[in-house]
């Protein structure tokens, strides 16, 4: 049990001292994963909503495929991206291997199916509630799509967080395509893996603590952003407290 108490100490001192190297790793972890999630949102949410609203041949196959892709093994994704980006690969000329960009590409592939599939699930339910009303107002499916995404925004935050969780916690893909190069592509998870293999369990656990702290931080932030409109806003429960002014209909 000595590692745990030591790890707390290490994690604490790492955070307190704002260790430069740690800050660099944390920033890279955050920026790679946030950019990957952002791209996955831009592509995945309209895709998921479109799968919920439009009917076309082959739609069911796409949905089954998308749902299965949620469980893609990161190592396999890393390997495929590695082959595509390697010097002899089809995209080798871009020279992206072992760069943060390659890590972002791999994480987008991992996160996109999660965000698209969860969005589809959320929008399907919303669409069943809204369809008649929107069609009655005269909305085309193309007009309904942004409406549903906007009205599902509070639920969709969960899809974003699931995507972010997958990206920030993933080690296999970034390890392969990034290469865990110090000061270039070293992120939290690959740093932890490295310290474990070096035998410095306390430092590894300390880094793990920082990673979990980050993850909790992002989720707490999302909750706070989400909260005003759902729970905390007094005007969401005003019917009980409103002054009983008599209103007349002309």
């Amino acid at each position: 049990m000595i590692e745990f108490s030591e790890a707390f100490g290490v994690a604490f001192s790492l955070l307190i001292s704002l260790d430069h190297e740690l800050a660099e790793i944390v920033m890279l972890s955050l920026s790679v994963s946030l950019v990957a999630v952002f791209i996955a949102i831009i592509v995945g949410m309209p895709l998921g909503a479109a799968l919920a609203i439009f009917t076309f041949p082959g739609r069911k196959f796409i949905i089954v495929g998308l749902n299965s892709l949620m469980g893609l093994p990161p190592v396999v994704v890393g390997l495929v991206v590695y082959i595509l980006l390697s010097r002899s690969g089809p995209l080798g000329v871009l020279g992206l291997l072992f760069t943060p960009t390659a890590m972002i590409i791999a994480q987008v592939i991992l996160v996109l199916p999660i965000i698209a599939a969860l969005t589809r699930q959320i929008v399907v339910e919303l669409w069943s509630e809204y369809e008649e009303q929107l069609r009655s107002l005269g909305a085309t499916p193309w007009q309904a799509l942004p409406t549903l995404l906007w009205d599902g925004r509070y639920s969709l935050v969960t899809a974003m967080l699931a995507g972010f969780g997958r990206a920030i916690a993933e080690v296999g893909a970034v390890m392969i395509v990034g290469g865990n190069i110090d000061h270039v592509t070293r992120v939290m998870t690959t740093a932890i893996a490295l310290e474990v293999s070096k035998g410095d369990l306390a430092l590894a656990l300390g880094l793990g603590g920082v990673l979990i702290f980050l993850s909790v931080g992002v989720n707490a932030l999302a909750y706070l952003i989400n909260k005003p409109a759902s729970l905390n806003n007094p005007i969401n429960k005003p019917t009980l407290f409103r002054s009983p002014i008599k209103e007349n209909v002309r």
Binding site: E129, Y130, E132, Q133, S136, G138, T147, D151, R153
Partner: peptide
């Protein structure tokens, strides 16, 4: 475009 309908359970957009 010249018709409209009110449903038993009105759908309120979240805005």
């Amino acid at each position: 475009r010249q018709q409209a309908m009110v449903f038993q359970r009105p759908v309120m957009l979240r805005r």
